[in-house]
Amino acid sequence: MEDLNNALATDLDRAFGSVVDEMGPRLFWGLRRMCGDHQEAEDLTQETFIRAYRALDGYEPKRIRELKLQPWIWTIAMNLGRNHVRDRARRPTAVEMFETGTEDPEPIDDAAWDRRLAILSSHQRDAVVLRHVVGLGIAEIADAVGRPEGTVKADIHRGLSRLRTTIEEES
């Protein structure tokens, strides 16, 4: 990651594609697990990277070198996601009559995991996904979601045990 920071600080335009390549899959699938909607996750991923680029464009090289990219990107994404949900709540949403298939290969047990994660509260779901799907540390999650570390730990703990119970009940 440090090489990437250096590259960004030296030549943002040239290096930014590598940020998308390197962080894109994790960002997209993390968001995809949180919101349960492929298209919305694509939009959020795209918008997050665009905002990240604009922010980096205004930063001094020193600040870019010191940036912890992964948690920083996730702070942008979580802020966007919150607004997205709020915006969506204010307008009517169309009912999907047909499954809109995507050409992208999806990982194992997709529908099953969507269902299981949907049972969690949104705080639990975000915390569990950021911790165990994306792989962020507790402090990084606390920053990204804007909640205290203790609360984040509790969310993860409760979320995981609820997932275990759900899986047990399935079999």
Binding site: G17, V20, D21, G24, P25, R26, F28, W29, G30, R33, H38, E42, T45, Q46, F49, I50, Y53, T102, E103, D104, P105, E106, P107, I108, W113, V128, V129, H132, V133, G135
Partner: peptide
């Protein structure tokens, strides 16, 4: 949960660019 990551869907990189 760790295995729930796939590749970045086509079109996203282009959209960002």
């Amino acid at each position: 949960l760790e295995s729930l990551i796939g590749s970045l869907p086509g079109g996203v990189s282009e959209g960002v660019a």
